[in-house]
């Protein structure tokens, strides 16, 4: 694991204990999870026991101790969404991606989570994909969205490969 981003984050936040939440947020964003290595390093740099950093990372749902996928899919399971068919949405997503709630697909592309209410009940059922809210979802619409994401990912990969090839040829 490349820890250089972590060192940069730590350098920029200073070594005061109170910077710990900001550091954890930035590490979560940069690595999409907070690794054991990162926790140990944060503990050393901020002079906080490892257990305290671990406790914090464990306490907040915004932090993840296992790698999250490149895309985060949150299916709202609140009352309004539930009544409007959230369980079927969730089943569709899980079946399509062959994963479980809270887990990440084997290729590291998707993490699926449920949330107990997004406060957008009028839009039920709601699915959030990479921070964007999609309202009045149906299994068909979710399927289409996921297929779009896959397609875009493949395009991006191809482009990357082309770039690498171009560089190699140059």
């Amino acid at each position: 694991m490349d820890l250089s981003r972590l060192e940069e984050i730590l350098d920029s936040k200073g070594s005061e204990t109170f910077a710990i939440m900001e550091v954890l947020q930035d590490v979560q964003e940069a690595y999409r999870y907070i690794s054991e290595e990162a926790i140990v390093r944060i503990s050393e740099r901020l002079d906080v026991p490892v257990i305290e950093v671990f406790r914090l990372a464990n306490f907040y749902k915004a932090f993840s101790l296992t790698p999250r996928g490149r895309h985060l899919i949150t299916v709202c399971a609140g009352t309004a969404c539930h009544v409007q068919g959230a369980p079927r949405l969730l089943d569709t997503v899980l079946a399509l991606l062959n994963t479980k709630p809270g887990e990440t697909t084997a290729d590291g592309a998707f993490t699926v989570e449920t949330v107990n209410c997004l406060g957008a009940c009028a839009l039920a059922p709601v699915v959030v994909i990479d921070g964007k809210y999609y309202d009045h979802m149906t299994p068909g619409k979710v399927r289409a969205l996921l297929e779009d994401i896959r397609f875009e990912d493949e395009l991006a990969e191809d482009e990357d490969e082309e770039e690498v090839e171009a560089e190699a040829n140059a």
Binding site: P49, V50, I51, R55, F59
Partner: peptide, 8 residues
């Protein structure tokens, strides 16, 4: 400082 209370 190894042990701690974890979870909520």
């Amino acid at each position: 400082g190894s042990l701690g209370m974890i979870g909520r």
